[in-house]
C-alpha cells in the first residue's frame, strides 16, 4: 500500500497524518460511520460528516473534539486532499476520498446501495485504489428488494396480531432498526421500540429524520438482538445473515428477514466496477474470497486484515 498503511492503531495515511476508523486512540481520526467497531472513544480529534455528528458523539462521548464537513467538501490535511462521500449505511456514513501525488484512494467504510429513507444514498467515487468492505462478499448473499422484505415483515406481524401474539423484531441500532421503523405501515397496528433502539431514535428525530409514530402498547416491538424475550411472542430478526438458514436457527428465531446495511455480492461488484479502480483491497471475513474473484476477473486485489467487526447487520 502507499497512500494508506496498517499500523498498530489502525489504517494510517502518511501524507495527511490521520487514521481511518482507528482501533486505538490516536491524534486525528476520520470516522466513516458511528458504529462501535469504527468509532472508538479516546482519540484527540475526530472528523466526520455533519449528518453523522450526533450519532458519533453518542459513541465517543459528549466532550470529544469533533470537526464536521459536508459531503464532498474538500479539506487539506497535510499534503493530502480529503473529502467524504455518502456510503448509504447510516446517517452521515461516508467513504473517504484521499488524493495525493496524483493518486486517488477511496476507503469505503461499510456501504449499501439500495434505497434507505433514513440516510443519504451511496455515491460511487472514481479512484485508482478502492479499499472495500466485504462483509457479505459471497454469491450466496444477494438481497431481495427492500420493499419485498418490508412486506414480508408486515405479513408476519399481521398474522401474529391475529393470533393474539406479540411480534418481537430484532434489529441492530443505529441502522437497520431505524430503517425498518421508517418503512413499516402504521395502519397494521401500534409499533414500539426498546430503550436500546429509542436512544438512537431521539438522535434521528433530532435531525429531522422521520421514523413514524411509536406506541406504549405495541403489537410489534423493535428491539436490539438478544434483548426482550417475551412469553407469548413470535421472534424474528432483520439482518443480512438471515440469508443463511443456519444462522437463524442458531438463534432459535421464528423468522429471519433479509435486510442489511451492507452491500450484497452483486452490489459489491457493481460498486467496485463503478469506482474504475485498478487495485482493490478487501477487508472483513470474506475479503480473501472477494480479492480472489477480482483477481480472476482482471483486477489487482488483495485481502486486508483489520479489526472491523461484522455486527448483526
Amino acid at each position: 500500500m502507499s497512500l494508506l498503511e496498517i499500523r498498530a492503531a489502525g489504517i494510517w495515511c502518511a501524507a495527511g497524518d490521520f487514521y481511518l476508523d482507528p482501533w486505538a486512540p490516536v491524534d486525528r481520526a476520520i470516522i466513516t460511520h458511528a458504529h462501535s467497531d469504527r468509532a472508538r472513544p479516546g482519540s484527540r480529534a475526530y472528523l466526520t460528516v455533519r449528518e453523522g455528528e450526533r450519532l458519533l458523539r453518542a459513541q465517543v462521548g459528549p466532550d470529544a473534539a469533533i470537526q464536521t464537513v459536508e459531503y464532498a467538501e474538500v479539506l487539506s490535511l497535510g499534503a493530502a486532499r480529503v473529502s467524504l462521500h455518502p456510503a448509504g449505511h447510516l446517517p452521515g456514513s461516508a467513504q473517504v476520498r484521499i488524493e495525493h501525488g496524483g493518486e486517488v484512494w477511496v476507503f469505503s467504510g461499510d456501504y449499501q446501495l439500495a434505497p434507505d429513507a433514513t440516510c443519504t444514498p451511496f455515491e460511487p467515487v472514481r479512484c485508482h485504489t478502492f479499499v472495500t468492505e466485504a462483509t457479505f462478499a459471497l454469491p450466496v448473499f444477494h438481497w431481495p428488494e427492500a420493499a419485498e422484505t418490508i412486506a414480508a415483515i408486515e405479513a408476519w406481524w399481521r398474522a401474529n396480531q391475529e393470533a393474539g401474539r406479540l411480534s418481537v423484531l430484532y434489529a441492530e441500532a443505529p441502522g437497520p432498526a431505524q430503517r425498518v421503523l421508517a418503512a413499516l405501515d402504521r395502519c397494521i397496528g401500534p409499533i414500539g421500540a426498546h430503550p436500546g433502539i429509542e436512544q438512537f431514535n431521539r438522535i434521528y428525530r433530532g435531525q429531522g429524520i422521520e421514523l413514524g409514530r411509536l406506541a406504549d402498547h405495541p403489537t410489534l416491538l423493535i428491539a436490539p438482538p438478544g434483548t426482550a424475550r417475551a412469553a407469548n411472542a413470535s421472534t424474528a430478526m432483520v439482518s443480512g445473515w438471515m440469508r443463511i438458514r443456519g444462522t437463524r436457527r442458531r438463534r432459535a428465531l421464528d423468522r429471519g428477514f433479509v435486510l442489511s446495511g451492507h452491500a450484497d455480492w452483486p452490489a459489491l461488484l457493481r460498486a467496485i466496477d463503478e469506482t474504475g479502480a485498478a487495485t482493490v483491497w478487501a477487508t472483513h471475513r470474506h475479503g480473501a474470497a472477494l480479492a480472489r474473484w477480482l483477481e480472476e476477473n482482471g483486477r489487482r486485489a488483495a485481502a486486508l486484515e483489520t479489526r472491523f467487526g461484522e455486527g448483526e447487520a
Binding site: L138, P139, V140, I244, R245, G246, H286, A289
Partner: peptide
C-alpha cells in the same frame, strides 16, 4: 461460479442443499 468459490460458500452456509439453492 468457480469451484473454489462454491467451496467458500459451502463453508459459510454449512449446508450442501442450501448452498446450491442460494447460488
Amino acid at each position: 461460479v468457480p469451484d473454489w468459490l462454491f467451496g467458500e460458500c459451502f463453508n459459510a452456509v454449512g449446508d450442501f442443499a442450501e448452498t446450491i439453492a442460494l447460488l
